[in-house]
């Protein structure tokens, strides 16, 4: 990796948030005036179990600088176990990205409940810092779709 990371635009992080916990958590972060960087593009999904790993691969191939997925804490899933199926899937996907040489800090999974607005802001701040340190996603050819 280059010594100095050069950004000509703001990092773009695609965030898949589950409808029942994390999306509400993000809402709470907003209504309670929590500060976090405007890097995330939120996509609301019914459940973290709905996030097909190909969504994440496709986002990265298309030039997103980072991807985060957040769902209900295990045991709290609106659909009982969707997030636990997702947990295995994400663990494997993270391993797979590591094997294929992707920087591990580009993809993050976490649990944020509807009452954890502070945690949501903290996650976004930390994920943005980590992605910013990595530099723009150079993996996709043809440059980033989000070039300004």
């Amino acid at each position: 990796m280059e010594d100095r990371v050069v950004w000509k635009r703001a990092p773009v992080i695609i965030a898949f948030l589950c409808n029942w916990c994390s999306y509400a958590g993000a809402d709470l972060a907003g209504t309670s005036r929590q500060q976090y960087p405007p890097s995330v593009r939120v996509i609301r999904v019914p459940c973290s179990g709905r996030v097909n790993p190909i969504y994440i691969i496709k986002a990265l191939a298309d030039g997103a600088d980072g991807v985060m997925v957040s769902g209900c804490h295990p045991g709290d899933c609106h659909y009982l176990a969707g997030n636990m199926y997702a947990r295995r899937r994400f663990a494997v996907l993270k391993k797979l990205l590591e094997i294929s040489g992707m920087e591990p800090d580009r993809v993050h999974f976490t649990w944020v409940s509807a009452s954890e607005g502070t945690r949501f802001a903290e996650v976004v701040r930390d994920v943005t810092d980590k992605v910013r340190a990595l530099g723009p996603n150079a993996l996709a050819d043809g440059g980033s779709r989000y070039e300004l």
Partner: peptide, 16 residues
């Protein structure tokens, strides 16, 4: 294995 899950699974590679 991918059609199963358990409360005891670890959060491997998760934030935090």
């Amino acid at each position: 294995v991918m059609q199963s899950c358990s409360m005891d699974d670890r959060n491997v590679g998760f934030w935090g």
